[in-house]
Design a binder for these strands. Structure first.
Lengths: 238, 238
DNA sequence: TTGCTCCTCACGTCACGTGAGGTGGC
DNA sequence: TTGCTCCTCACGTCACGTGAGGTGGC
């Protein structure tokens, strides 16, 4: 009542080669061999294989699975809860990418298709920068804030930002004193808009600051330079 | 105004080794070299790198990216729409796994934890079998049907199935004639329940039949054997 | 006797990581 | 002169795929 590799492969949906591989890793040594050297797998081996495949499906590397098979109380549940969280995070990351790209693709319908490729490239570059500075959870918070604003709200916020940045740059270029009430008003609007994005989380705020301080590409794309931030700071400190 | 590898690595968030690798693949040969052999990257190279990373993020293998960089009209959009679909599918697959495992984990709260590990293993084995027989879309259809039933409805359907299978087995074991009205009634209930699962899609129905015909593990777990199906068929053909 | 399955090497894949050993620029 | 960055091999990783060359079972 034993199985050959081929039979076990068919039952499990794996290839013969994969079963050979599992043997070499010490994961699934067949219970026996025939005189001719053929591998013989028993029902117990089938059960072990199911455990292996369960762990694999949960995202464990094969070499981490071997030690789990010896345990009398298989920690499938512990692994499950840990991997579940990782799977959820991966899922959210995918979803964020899909959402952002979809929204950019949607705008393509309105604008000329000419510069769409450019704006896609820029968006994706900005996303990569964000992903270097923020954790999964923080990225998720941003996504939720954007979702709260809705599509129209998001557009409006974008327009406000670009207008505000342009206005501050203009004052700065004109040499207006940062203590001038006009500049002070702009600076207060700036803080309000920024808070909408970062919330009151100080950790996030300092990360945002660090990101804009270090990433010249981000500075160039947004127009938010260290000089501009210094100008605003002078205005606010007064 | 050129960049060294280290500078480009910092700007892009890649490693120096990755940039070396891209060069060897012909993806991003630096525009120049210093006398000492140092790589020199220009702004144009930075742009090319952004394109490379965008395609990579969309899931393209590196060797498929090289031909796309030469095109005057970068087919970023075409790639985007294709990869978007793939990403969505991947996302749904992840979601299904997470959903199934969550529901099984939820039941763990109620039942003894003793046999939970077993039921998890069995569930995951059954899922693997299904995934060998059905396409992404079909798996998604199943998931949607389950979602429609809701949690309570799903439980009830399960109870009905196990009861029905047990009843048919009992009649078969007792040697009841398949043409007996009691058996005929069971067979009609069977068909109704099955239709709830497969819908009227003939392709899916025949796949389900093939799956139960070939997969002895599935037969053993569910108790739906070829003999039982033959018995029901006789009853329905009358 | 003819297929079919089985066996054991052993190199290939993919996108880099990680030293090893050495040189150039500030 | 001292670090720091740069250079070029070249082997390692991960989970197998894919022949190559040969043998055993029905």
């Amino acid at each position: 009542m034993d199985y050959t590799v081929g039979e076990l492969a068919k039952r499990s949906g794996l290839t013969v080669r994969a079963l050979h591989h599992y043997e070499k890793l010490g994961l699934l040594p067949p219970s026996g061999r025939t005189q001719a050297g053929y591998r013989q797998y028993t029902e117990a081996d089938v059960l072990t294989l199911h455990r292996i495949l369960a762990y694999r499906q949960l995202g464990l590397p094969l070499k981490d699975i071997a030690p789990l098979l010896g345990a009398d109380a298989p920690p499938l549940l512990d692994v499950l809860s840990r991997q579940l969280a990782a799977a959820q995070a991966q899922l959210k990351r995918q979803q964020r990418l899909v959402d952002m790209l979809t929204s950019v693709a949607a705008r393509a319908q309105e604008a000329q298709t000419a510069d769409l490729s450019d704006s896609l490239l820029t968006l994706m570059a900005m996303m990569r920068i964000y992903e270097r500075y923020f954790t999964e959870d923080e990225m998720q918070q941003f996504a939720e804030r954007r979702a709260l604003l809705g599509d129209a709200g998001l557009r409006q916020t974008e327009v406000e930002w670009t207008g505000l940045i342009a206005a501050v740059r203009a004052e700065m270029a004109a040499g207006t004193d940062p203590l001038n009430p006009v500049v002070a008003a702009l600076a207060r609007r700036w803080m309000a808009l920024a808070e909408q994005f970062t919330g009151e989380d100080q950790a996030i705020r300092s990360k945002v600051r660090a990101m804009y301080a270090h990433e010249t590409d981000l500075q160039r794309e947004t127009g938010v330079t260290p000089a501009l931030l210094g100008y605003l700071r002078q205005s606010l400190l007064a």
